[in-house]
Design a protein around this nucleic acid. Structure first.
Lengths: 141, 141
DNA sequence: TCTTGACCTTCCCATCATGTCAACCCCATA
DNA sequence: TATGGGGTTGACATGATGGGAAGGTCAAGA
């Protein structure tokens, strides 16, 4: 049994000690064994679990998804369809967010190309943000 | 003087009353006039300011950028270069974030196509998240 | 005139994932 | 034994937004 401290577990997994404790507090990982002085000591299985979480987080999965994925990982009678469903939903979310950000970037980039970027105060970017809609008191989108 | 309540200002600008008060509390907009009973009443200029903020937020600008953009909007001796610089920096951030999310989506999508998605427990997605690295206690990547 | 419902006010708490900071305890080594 | 580098808990912050409670105010209908 190679038990390691939280610092060593952090270095082995790339998850900060703060986050390891946080995962424990929200029930994402089980509480590790403690020695008399109260120190947490992590087993190889604990390390594997932390690695799993870190990889899932690197793929952008939220904690709730990770919780379900961990449950499926442990459930040997799972169906891969369940896993795939979670993953596909997340892929759709990632693509939607990416597309939204890309669209913002596109729109703003168009404005910047129209902006001279010199010492003159005239700026199409500000014009677009503050159109002189005289008399109209509502935002037309 | 067409003064309107916070609800009407919200409907005119698409900014929730909650957020309007929040913008005031963090100094993003100036405090509007109040009547004896303490109710906020917004002028057409206030409405314009809120529209500006909403459009900037629709482009993903953080509050700090919006603060600077509002200052430049009011400064008639501004140079368009200052505005453009803020916008270009934000474009770069948007593109970077979009690319990051897209990369996550790509990686996960590749895994999902390899997953049968049937009743079998075997799943390449879980395999990728939990590689059987026997004996190795660290996360390789 | 009284009630009712819609609106206003302030203040606190929650999200999501992560970091910082402080106060304090424990242990090994120079 | 002093020092440094761990460990522990807890509180607070981010950024942008939402929810809700507790209480004051206003306008319209009975």
């Amino acid at each position: 049994m190679t038990l390691v401290t939280i610092k060593q577990a952090s270095e082995a997994t790339g998850v900060s000690p703060k986050m390891i404790r946080h995962y424990e507090s929200i029930g994402l990982i089980k509480a590790p064994t403690r020695t008399e002085n109260g120190y947490r000591y992590y087993s190889p299985e604990d390390i594997s679990g932390l690695c799993f979480i870190r990889r899932a987080r690197d793929l952008g999965f939220p904690f709730e998804d990770i919780r379900q994925l961990l449950a499926l990982l442990r459930d040997k009678r799972r169906s891969s369809a369940e896993v795939k469903q979670i993953a596909l939903r997340h892929v759709a979310e990632l693509e939607a967010k990416a597309a939204q950000l890309a669209a913002m970037g596109e729109a703003l980039k168009r404005l910047t190309t129209a902006c001279p970027g010199n010492s003159s105060p005239h700026c199409p970017i500000l014009d677009a943000l503050d159109p002189p809609q005289l008399g109209k008191l509502w935002c037309n989108s």
